[in-house]
Design a protein around this nucleic acid. Sequence first.
RNA 1: GCGGUGGUAGCUCAGCUGGAUAGAGCAUCGGUUUUCUAAACCGAUGGUCGCGAGUUCGAGUCUCGCCCACCGCGCCA
Length: 614
Amino acid sequence: MPSPRPARRKPTPRLRAARRIRFSGAMHASFHLAADLDRALRAAAAAAGLADAAAFAPEVRVADPKHGDFQANGTLGYAKARKLNPRAVADQIANALPAEVRAAFDHVIAGPGFINFTLKPAALLAWLNSFATADRLRSGASAAHAGQTWVVDYSSPNTAKQMHVGHLRSAVIGEAICRLLAFTGARVIRDNHLGDWGTQFGKLIYGYKRWADQAALATDAIEELERLYKLGNAATPDGSPELEEARRELVALQNGDAANVALWQKFSEVSLAAFQQIYDRLGIRFDHNLGESFYNDKVERIYRELTETTPPLAQISEGALVVFHPEHPRFKTQPFLVRKADGASNYASTDLATALYRTEHFKADGIVVVTDFRQADHFEQLFLTVRKWFAAKSYRLPELHHVTFGAVTGEDGKALKTRSGDVIKLKALLDEAEDRAFAIVSEKNPDLPEPERREIARTVGIGAVQYADLSQNRSSNYIFSWDKMLALDGNTAPYLLYAVARIHSIFRKAAASPHDPAHAAAASGLETAAEILLARKLVKFPDALRLATDTLRPHFLGLYLFELAGDYSSFNNADKVLVDEPAVRARRLLLCARTLLTLETGLHLLGLRTLTRM
RNA sequence: GCGGUGGUAGCUCAGCUGGAUAGAGCAUCGGUUUUCUAAACCGAUGGUCGCGAGUUCGAGUCUCGCCCACCGCGCCA
């Protein structure tokens, strides 16, 4: 599989110690039950006296509910390699399982030799009691990236241009990844790598100096800058004296000409202000906006370091400074061009400088760059080069991940455009999402006051756009469909938000708080099929979280939330919550509270807002 | 030409890195409410996992070959 996948991190001694302490039985449930089982199975293999027990990998997976909660597949591979009977091996291991595991799980050997584990109702309840708040969930999850710093580079629009639909996926997926990494313990640095430098600024300054409309700049600066760029571009055809003039403006800017630098700064400022209006609606706030211009004075060091090693990593070819990778079938001939023949830098130079800055200045343990799949070659070459360069200079090497995603297309499968063929501006798209959501809310719930319907429309409309992107595997193209993303059935934001709203509704009706520990204290043991099915789903949140974070694919979390909302709806339909018997009512309120906690926590991790009524 | 990503039910998509009888939603058909939001739930119909070989206890998943779509491949990012 070509998409980047984080290597399993070696646990630090500190983490190993933490895991030992966290290992426990049913009384004090540990966060990640599958990880508990993995350790218990390894210990059992050793205790059972299996030959070569250290080589036994349990391969614990979340199971189909009809088979249990978790299954260990590792016995099959282990037995096969040693020509043993897999069921006999499974039996030996199962018989040596520690008492805590036997207390918490029923287990059975099934099929060719799987060991299936099903949590007992008391163990389910113990887990739900242990993880009663978002903080508890976070501290349970935080071991994965504790003590690490991750820099995430996403959104990254060009200044002096409006954000359009092509910027949506990077922003939405990038923000979700930031939140996942932060929740699992990392210090996350959100870095907006703006396209704020390059030849287009010569043409823009040329247009600005001739045709700028100050009134238009005051009302909608970006719109006016786009108009001026188009004018400037049209007025400077190849070979024309006007183009020469535009180039002189660019050279003046690059040489620090005060007037042009001031103009460029103004362009950046108004652009950032316009971007922030979009980011506010998407719940995004960057820590840094270190665009390409920031690295202007940092590329000389790159050229020097890439050429001073023996043998040099970079070489001159056709006047340009390039890096070849002789061991690579394609990049041995397809150059990585780090300095143009005219001596100017390009995106390869600044990206190399960026990787170094993030390593040295931010002390990054991991760097994630979120761009569309068309840049895959560039980043593969970039990372290959960084690895060799850092090794040659003995720099510490962070994990490097290029997170790619497919195109957003219309229902015809072609790039998404307006009817007139223009790109769709992100502002207009978000406006339309809210308008459509408002129409639906007003139809479904006309009695709510209009300000509340507006607020609901904001949350549902924007959430629908975000979730449509996040619910699907990011590597495939995604077909933009208002009807599908705003549908109330299926894996959509409205369906999930509706489940959240219904749970809030029950607590309103009961005049109770989801945070009240009294429900847990008064709860009797889980009994009905729907209660148990729901609880079994709730305890698998850690698995979904880990999968989404390890693969940097948020849709795994989305899929889990959808399944959880479905199990909740079934429970809600089968078992009335507000019954008279206090102990039954309390345990069902407990399930409602934990479902609410998990759905809200999960949706917030994906960058969505939630509602109490809709 | 080389490479990347896709190809799974009529449509839109999952499929946890090789595991059990391939799953959801939409659509179609049928059912459920004097009950906490029916914006819901339950059931049925629907599959040559693009095609063909191979690897092995086991392949949608791995290997090889082919077909189709989108995309990338020297001075844009």
